[in-house]
Design a protein around this nucleic acid. Structure first.
Lengths: 334, 334
DNA sequence: CTGAAAGCGCTAACAT
DNA sequence: ATGTTAGCGCTTTCAG
């Protein structure tokens, strides 16, 4: 691999002239510039980034850790972040934590070791001391989708509580009195917020709160749904606290030939591509995915530019209730 | 930031002892090891990766460039690659080319400049000289999903031709004689292979080849479909050469209340999550997404381990025709 | 088993 | 406007 010194030798100039031409740091005589450029061309010189980082201790690489890179929601976030980062001159190192705190910790440590300029993260655990450590080392952290427990940091979330609250009110407005909330049993921030929003709406309307947890520990949707449907008073609407749950519910309802929204209305947190393909189409709470990624990246860039620690910035984005057919607003097959 | 020398000073030993403890390069007396470890703990030493790279000129980072990080197919690939890379001690730098060759070129150059150990890429262009340059610089390239035109490299693809050939034969086997192939108008390898596979099957059966191109230049599916349906002889089956096209076709057929598979049968290249949620469920050609990522990563790791240039490895994975209802095999709502 | 010194490729700071 | 020097933090090499 040719080095800057090699270029200097061939061009017959000092190393700094070469450095100046390469980085455009200062004016250089056209004569020298020409010689340097042709030497670079000739031996195919490419600057060594590692040496630059070693010198300046700044890397223009951002770290991004999410639970699952294949999940459509996270993938869209990553996509938006990567694009915004690139536009600002940063590359993005991505890693999936597989929802495991231990892996997330190791990935975080390695990224810090690699001197990433900043860390964007959808955190999966509750300890989070590895993020505190990162910050102590001068690596700013932006939490996405969920705030960091026990650790102060910038964060960018959506208003899960309010969204669920309004979605539930929407169902109540349609005259539903027996509304069941079905949620994953994972204990993460977004889920508890969503359940809380639902609960608040129900209590405000003097209706009884009925939450069913499904998942690895509490059983599959297909196991639980019969019980839910046959409980008394019979539920007339379901609020699915995630699209994964919603899709399972939908599939199950279809296989039982339960008519939506006639027999059971359905609203689902998170949009999904099939929501407009099935009949009836599914009413969902839509998160501004691209905006989340974009704003999160922007927060990081601002933080990096400022270089002042400063108080953490907390942004909470609104969601949108996208009314389709499954809530009973408009007749299906319309 | 504390350095290795700082640790040495505090522990009262030489720098090399510290280095050896940190890397486990050689045996060190327990006494020294203890002192070093406690010193590391005390000042929170973290090795500086840049210095390591500068010394060794090897970075344990892989570069990954795909057209779109949010696309489910690419996202799944990325996910599998990242995981396999991590298990082998590599981190992954990801970038989206946005289907633009110029951007892809810049990203490639920057990654080479960053001394990535290898480059995995779903290439979008036809020039590809930037990949040739990368290889010349000692950065191996593995092409995923499509081979690199004009450039020799390892590649991992799926057998688009054979898959399309057999899917078309499947429709012919159901007695269909008028089968239309609808494909994106992008001029990429996978599309042409798919159209070729379809064409071959039709010609072998002495049936007339009818290909419709849709997309930015040739018009939307919703614009084209009426013409296609009303052409004579009336088509009784559609082979959609991608899931994007398939979903558009499906949506359009639904809105026209065309009965699938009774009036029109449908097979779609690429599985998609909605395919099992809609009624009838959609027969698709399934690509082994996770395996593609895994094997591609493995190819890269092998190549890095070997360190010998050697002849390019070309792997072509088989696909699977997942028979559901839309092809007419089993009655819908079964 | 341990330490000292050299140098990886680059740029900031100082000469000229 | 250009060149020279020093040193970023680490590991390889060579002595002890």
């Amino acid at each position: 691999m040719p080095t800057l010194a090699d270029v200097a030798k061939i061009a017959g100039v000092g190393v700094m002239s070469v450095s100046r031409v390469v980085n455009g740091t200062r004016r250089v005589s056209p004569e020298v510039e020409r010689k340097v450029r042709s030497a670079i061309e000739k031996i195919g010189y490419v600057p060594n980034e590692a040496a630059r980082i070693l010198k300046g201790n700044k890397s223009s690489v951002l770290g991004l850790i999410v639970p699952d890179l294949a999940d459509p929601f996270f993938a869209s976030c990553c996509s938006a972040i990567q694009e915004a980062a690139w536009d600002a001159g940063y590359m993005t190192l991505m890693a999936a934590s597989g929802h495991r705190e231990e892996l997330e910790r190791r990935e975080t440590d390695i990224m810090v070791q690699r001197r990433v300029a900043g860390l964007l993260v959808v955190a999966v655990g509750s300890q989070n001391d590895h993020f505190a450590t990162a910050q102590k080392r001068g690596v700013p952290v932006v939490a996405i989708d969920r705030p960091l427990q026990h650790v102060e940091s910038d964060s960018l979330t959506v208003d899960n509580f309010d969204a669920s609250f309004r979605a539930t009110q929407h169902l109540i407005g349609h005259g539903h009195r027996n509304i069941v909330c079905i949620a994953d049993d994972e204990r993460i921030y977004t889920k508890t917020e969503r359940v809380s929003g639902y609960s608040r709406a129900m209590r405000e309307a003097n209706l009884s709160v009925r939450v069913s947890l499904v998942g690895a520990m509490t059983g599959l949707v297909s196991d639980q749904l019969p019980d839910i449907l046959q409980s008394t008073p019979a539920p007339t609407a379901i609020f699915a606290a995630s699209n994964l749950v919603g899709i399972d519910v939908l599939r199950d309802l279809q296989s039982r030939s339960v008519k939506i929204p006639k027999q059971i209305a359905l609203i689902c947190f998170d949009d999904f591509s099939a929501a407009t393909l099935v009949s009836p189409t599914i009413t969902v709470i839509q998160q501004p995915v691209a905006e989340i990624g974009q704003r999160a990246a922007q927060m990081m860039l601002d933080r990096l530019k400022a270089a002042t620690p400063g108080a953490p910035t907390k942004v909470m984005l609104p969601t949108q209730l996208v009314v389709r057919q499954s809530c009973g607003c408009s007749p299906p097959r319309a």
